[in-house]
Amino acid sequence: MELRHFQYFVAVAETGSLTTAAEQRLHTSQPSLSRQIRDLGAEVGAQLLIRSARGVELTEAGLAFLEHARLVLMQAELAAKAAWKVAHPAKPVFALGFLTGEEMNWLPETMRTLCDELPNTEVTISSQNSPQLGQALMKGELDLAFMRAELNMPDLIYRHVDTEPLVAAMPRDHRFAAFDEVDPRHLVSETFIAVSRVSPTLKLVIDEFISKLNVGIRPSHEVDNLAMAMSLVASTRGIMLVPAYAENLLPASVVCRPLAGEPPTIDLVIGYSKTNTSTTLNLFLNRVDDLISRCLPRQARNGY
């Protein structure tokens, strides 16, 4: 009795038809399948199937055999999977997260930093807003993220990477686009687009800056992400304060200008869980200073 006999029998039993089982499940000829089923019955010493007006039906012996045949096939599949796993051990996974857009600045050198581990490690990349990255770190779904230092996440450790100024994003043909820098006090006369609570750290920085100006700037709209922000800037001819790295994501219709005076700033950090014992994470943390020294001069040359 061979494994294929069990496969053939189960296929016929589940479809209720020799023809259907042969053509759709087993991709063999119906006469060949009938012969295999007869040989199986002869070896078992009992009639397993009978023909009826409704097709093929199981005898009582066939019903008893079916349960064990399915178990045999399941065990054979498990055995094959177990052998494959031993022969092809899974690579450890190192999961990286980036505040949407920051991967353009930091991913290439991050991968270079990890290059020694790459042959033995599968690296995955995700792009999300900062609170989502923090939640993923705490759940163990990410090993490390370039993000904001989010409050109320005591299980995370943050390491400062960069401090970015905020700039004014506006339509390319806006009158302020002709200036080298924008006086933030003049935003009071413009359609001002604010950040929603989806990005609480950025929202806090902008709200505190607007409050200190004390010129009565009131937001006309709130946005949840940079893509939505750029669309709204272009469609409403509004102005929005964004971190300088957002210049990487600008459509042709939107430009950024520095703010006059002392602009607000926001920190970029790498975050990771206190309980993460990944050897790849430890290797990366030991090389962070070198990563920063390579990335920041290049970003300065590119104007952000």
Rank of each mutant, 00 (worst) to 15 (best):
G55Q: 09
P108S: 05
R294F: 00
Y245M: 08
K139A: 15
A21C: 06
L166H: 01
D155V: 01
R51N: 12
R70W: 00
R51E: 09
E181S: 15
A149F: 00
T277Q: 14
L49T: 08
E109Q: 14
T110P: 00
A21Q: 07
L142K: 01
I217S: 02
F192R: 04
Q135M: 11
D39Y: 08
I217K: 06
I206A: 04
V255E: 11
R54N: 13
G216P: 08
K91W: 09
E23K: 15
M1Y: 02
M170Y: 01
R70V: 01
L285T: 07
L66R: 03
S278T: 03
T280Q: 10
N248M: 07
Q75Y: 02
V86S: 10
P92T: 08
E122Y: 06
I37H: 09
V255M: 11
H221V: 13
L202G: 04
P263M: 07
L226D: 07
L33N: 03
G16P: 07
H186G: 04
K203G: 12
A260V: 05
S130D: 12
P119Q: 04
F9P: 06
S199V: 12
D39N: 14
M240Q: 06
R175Q: 13
S199E: 12
G101I: 02
L58P: 10
A246F: 03
L73D: 13
S127H: 11
F176R: 09
L96S: 09
Y8A: 15
E23P: 00
P154A: 08
F209Q: 05
L249S: 10
N302E: 14
V254G: 03
K81L: 15
I50E: 12
A260L: 10
Q75K: 12
D180G: 14
V254T: 05
L296I: 14
